[in-house]
């Protein structure tokens, strides 16, 4: 199979079966890409670190990267199109029927039940990241590698945005927070050392 078609179909498959967003996709991409001999698993791990710290959805970043290394710009485009297409089509179908669906009381009851859960999952993700990224706990039993500088940066960011919130009665833009934190990172790890 020509590599461009292979890229498109591989990522189409990954896009169609991965529930639960980007992180759920990582093991699948790794498996496929290594099995096809496109990249070594070390290479994939290196890139995941970059994909997590560059902007954009992780799944899109991985598709673009694998596509670009195997098929240049066309490969990047086709792999990305492949990974996006299933989600795009499924959501179009769901969105075009959802208005009618919401009229049904059971569907509405389902959504009422799910809403607080989704919010809990977001906060749970935040707490998990706080434990892993800042306190350095990977999982129970693995011990700590406490990042006190990250905790300081977290504290400064939290304090600044909460104070801004109180004073201005609106929230600080996440974009400003991210740029500010990047500068803090350079200050604490680079300038101070």
């Amino acid at each position: 199979m020509p590599v461009l078609l292979d890229l498109f179909l591989t990522f189409l498959k990954i896009g169609a079966v991965s529930f639960g967003g980007g992180y759920a996709m990582i093991p699948m991409v790794t498996e496929e890409v290594v099995a096809k001999g496109w990249l070594t698993s070390e290479r994939v791990m290196d890139f995941i670190a970059v994909a997590e710290s560059t902007p954009g959805p992780i799944a899109i970043n991985m598709a673009t990267f694998v596509g670009a290394t195997q098929g240049g710009i066309l490969g990047a485009l086709l792999a990305t199109l492949g990974v996006v297409l299933p989600a795009f089509i499924i959501i179009l179908l769901v969105a075009s029927i959802i208005k009618g669906l919401l009229k049904y009381a059971p569907v509405n009851a389902f959504l009422v039940g799910v809403r607080p859960v989704v919010m809990g999952l977001i906060v749970g993700t935040g707490i998990t990241l706080f434990l892993t990224v800042i306190l350095g706990v990977a999982r129970i039993g693995d011990g700590f590698s406490f990042e006190y500088k990250s905790l300081i940066i977290f504290g400064i960011v939290a304090a600044v945005s909460l104070i801004y919130n109180k004073l201005r009665k609106k929230s600080l833009s996440p974009i400003i927070i991210i740029v500010f934190a990047a500068l803090l990172g350079m200050l604490f790890y680079g300038v101070i050392g």
Binding site: G126, S171, I178, A181
Partner: peptide, 30 residues
């Protein structure tokens, strides 16, 4: 790219902010 130390430093800071952003987004919605 992956060897650039200043890129690494900036991303370490960004990761800490992302944790805060996710937490506050979930709490705000709730």
């Amino acid at each position: 790219f992956i060897e650039l130390v200043w890129v690494k430093y900036a991303f370490t800071g960004i990761r800490a902010a992302v944790v805060f952003l996710i937490l506050s987004a979930g709490i705000k919605l709730f």
